[in-house]
Design a protein around this nucleic acid. Structure first.
Lengths: 212, 212, 212, 212
DNA sequence: TATGAATGAGTCTTCATTCAT
DNA sequence: GATGAATGAAGACTCATTCAT
């Protein structure tokens, strides 16, 4: 009465079967994206990783890139949501400790996100599809800006940050410098990474943030 | 009878033909790299652009990636050397104007460099080769750090920058934030780019740099 | 509890459901055949058009071709039966007008039938199945010969056609020449079709038909 | 100094190597077209038949259809040129014998041409390409019309055909009726073909052709 | 040594057919 | 019996690399 399910979903119960495999495919692709460079991921590899046959993909997505776009979005979200939970509350601990912690979190995010962004930039067609899919939701790292700005505004309200500091600018400086560090780490992968210089960044920022 | 020269080199005299052709190939590839995404450049396209036959490449390079690595290095140098000349002298104009100018230069550099870096990150095999080729010369943007640090140290010596400012950190903040802006511009290509926020960065930095 | 009926047949009552669905499939396929080239019709498309699931087909037919053969036969019949009704009665109007009318009808039939015949010839496996299915009933255009021959025999009996004319041959000449015109129109589809030359055919035939 | 040649062309000398393989591919494809239905011919099969590797095709043709179009044209020409040589001279033998001979020739041509035309009609994309390729040269069987019309005009000038006969119409009747016979033969392939009725056609035509 | 055509492994995609539900 | 998702074989096409000339 209902069509058969993919063997790989045999165990599951209770979820809408029409959604289950589609979701499973996005999941498998997202996980692959987290592990290996976008450009090296083939449709066969995705099917293999999902435990299904080569053709299923096309029952749920117009083509490979449609799946990839969804998987990228999901993988971005996974990374960013996990990180957002680690942003400190304004007023807790010290400003310095909090900035160090935020820098650490940003480094983690960027380490994961760099290969994805690179994969997108390297594939203009895919980038365009991604852009269309996100048209009003600014891409990638930006999703992460709002909570950081909120944190800094909180500290400013509490007087731990100078009233003339611009949270928007601070976040740009923080995300930019940590992404450079993350990229340097990526480029030097495997070998002794560039000394971790996140404290240099934080020290430098603090000088401009501390109230007079 | 001496060995045949590639037609494209017919005019030249006096230089070792073997070196000349090798160099010519790197040149052609470097120029292509400056124009289109790394991943879309084929060996045939390089040969076409160089005006030589498809096969010569393999007389001078182990494979496509060997050529690409040299071409990448050359194209990086071209971009960075052109930009280095535009860094202001310490003590000239105002600190703010100079930082604005440096930010503008950095944005230009990064706009050109982003597709190359992305191409490298997207292709681990190529990245590894690149890394081996550069093993002691830290990659890419770093080549550009020294002159920027020198500028800031100059300004510090002249008293236009606080004595406790750390040029290394400032440069990291500058390069990072501009690279984010450049990337945002790239990702949004074609559409109304993110408002150019370089002045936000500069304002923010200045607050921490101005003496007492 | 009797077996489930396809949703699409829900309304019907009184007919054997197994027969009804089988017939419904043939009907849907026949209609598709009348609309688009045989080779481009997929099993999914047929199921969609019939409003049933992809798999039912295999409950009533050995495979896609078995269904297609029946659908072809039905669509041929539809076309030909509609046309046969338009053949004039011997003795009515003028011989010339009747031949013109018959030529027009033949052109219509052939326009519809050409893609089907082409689809059959292009697919030997299907053609063979068709042939087996029709083994004693000569295919396609022949079904249309009998009424045309009858018309000509009628006119001969009435003395409007020479007594030594051979209806069998006349029909062959008529069907052949109109099918060439129809084919030419098909091949030139979209562009200015070959001038319609049916009157040339009729004039030519008349010369040999008019009593001495 | 020159690139290597395909192994399959090893023996040949004296022909332009750049043309040789391209031509060889068209030849191989044309021969396949003469043997098996267009729709069943794969790029691999063509390569196999030509004795070359799978990819060469794309060194000479934009895609499979580009090759197929050229091969179709060649195969049409082969068939038609061989047949054109068999058309009798006006005034030789008897009119009846000549028409019988022409009918026989037409049957041969059509037997070969029917699968090609069917393949084209069954594949609208290919048909369109073919049409574009031939834009001013009316397709296929039409190439054969001119010499037939010339023959009939010759006979008319000699007084063996009535002066009010229209060669254009006669040719249409001849080609049409023989193509029906050829098609019937094709559809009945393998089994006892429809009785050969070409004499019926000729008899019928003669009645309208013989002078007063 | 330069040439550039030949090679063939690898990719995405389609679709008839199967089969668990 | 009906459902419609899963299966997987097969096809067109690309491109780094080889190699006869």
């Amino acid at each position: 009465m209902s069509p058969r399910r993919a063997r790989v979903l045999a165990g599951r119960v209770g979820d809408d079967p029409a959604v289950a495999l589609r979701d499973h495919l996005v999941d498998a692709a997202a996980t692959l994206i987290g592990r290996s460079p976008l450009a090296l991921i083939t449709t066969r590899e995705i099917a293999r990783a999902a435990g299904v046959s080569d053709g299923v993909l096309y029952n749920y997505f117009g083509d490979k890139n449609d799946l990839l776009v969804e998987a990228l979005v999901r993988q971005f979200r996974r990374t960013i949501e996990a990180a957002a939970a680690r942003i400190p509350e304004p007023g807790t601990a010290t400003l310095e400790a909090n900035l160090e912690s935020i820098a650490t979190t940003l480094l983690d995010v960027e380490r994961e996100v760099i290969p994805m962004i690179a994969g997108l930039v390297a594939d203009p067609a895919l980038l365009h599809r991604m852009f269309v899919a996100l048209h009003d939701d600014p891409l990638g790292p930006h999703w992460f800006r709002a909570p950081l700005i909120a944190y800094l505004e909180g500290e400013r309200r509490l007087g731990r940050v100078r009233s003339d500091a611009n949270p928007d600018g601070i976040v740009l400086l923080l995300m930019g410098s940590t992404s450079i560090l993350a990229l340097a780490g990526h480029l030097a992968s495997g070998t002794a990474a560039e000394a971790d210089r996140r404290h240099v960044v934080v020290d430098e920022l603090l000088r401009g943030l501390r109230p007079g």
